[in-house]
Design a binder for these strands. Structure first.
Lengths: 149, 149
DNA sequence: GCTATTTGTAACTAACTAAGTTACATGAAA
DNA sequence: TTTCATGTAACTTAGTTAGTTACAAATAGC
């Protein structure tokens, strides 16, 4: 799992969970999908559990399942649950009292506020169901997935 | 200079340059504004020079000046010249051939394309002149800047 | 020309972040 | 009660970026 690929890796995992709704997938299995470690998976999607996007169960036959229908899970929620920032730049004051910095931060924060609203709005209209539909389309065309579902 | 504050730090520097159009400011001076090292400044704004946003001159009386009027310098250009990414997440394939990943990346890239277009559009309407105007407003109200211009 | 000043840049160091790993307690099913 | 799975803490490793040192190259003023 590369740096900065937490969102796409998580989506990858979630699509697999959506495609196997009848059974729980273990972190071990999920980890192999995204070529990483089970502990990294658990750590990464722990926030999704708290958000009700997935549920986990321990012990024999345990693992991870979606917490609700793919249609009801938006990328906006997932992104928030992962603790991802949509915009990368920081606007924390480094010279409190400097009017130049205050002006810069004010303008930048205005932009950030508006931009984040816009991005969140866009992401809220993309659901996990859209992803699985896209996957199904590709699957029906080519007829095989690289790691058997 | 903190991590992820390259954009705001650079804007800070540029506003100072805009406020002193008659003379060149040395990297030494610019560095004190953002509490960092002259070499870091030179390295950070080297890209702005290549983009014509600033110009630099060596030797006695040398230093940095804006390459054109503040009205003609947009945050979009600055952001690009700094090599900043507007969206932080990666969509590079880690499992080439995996249809699930392909679907995820396709949807995410669609979103990214649209989002970047939108953000760039917004940033292109904010100019350095807007920042200096905001600074002037604050300055006229309070009457003093923390580090003398 | 010589000197002082300033950028340009390479090379290295330090600090920070995030992934990867190990280890083990906790809980649940067979 | 054994086995399997998550939950989580603690540590290690890798990668990134800021900070630093050093010095060559260019320019202005004398």
């Amino acid at each position: 799992m590369k740096r900065n690929s937490r969102l796409s890796s998580t989506l990858h995992i979630l699509v697999h969970m959506a495609e196997a709704p009848e059974r729980a997938l273990t972190s071990e299995q999920l980890a192999t999908f995204i070529h990483t470690n089970p502990v990294v998976v658990r750590r990464t999607i722990a926030g999704l559990r708290e958000a009700g996007i997935v549920s986990s169960s321990r012990g024999h036959g345990g693992g991870w399942q979606l917490g609700r229908a793919p249609e009801e899970i938006s990328l906006a929620e997932i992104s928030v649950a992962l603790g991802e920032t949509l915009l990368p730049f920081s606007t924390e004051p480094e010279s409190p009292g400097c009017l130049v910095e205050q002006a810069v931060i004010a303008v930048l924060d205005d932009f950030r506020l508006e931009a984040e609203r816009l991005l969140a709005e866009k992401l809220s209209h993309i659901t996990l169901a859209d992803l699985t539909a896209d996957f199904r389309r590709r699957y029906d065309l080519i007829g095989v997935s690289s790691h058997a579902l």
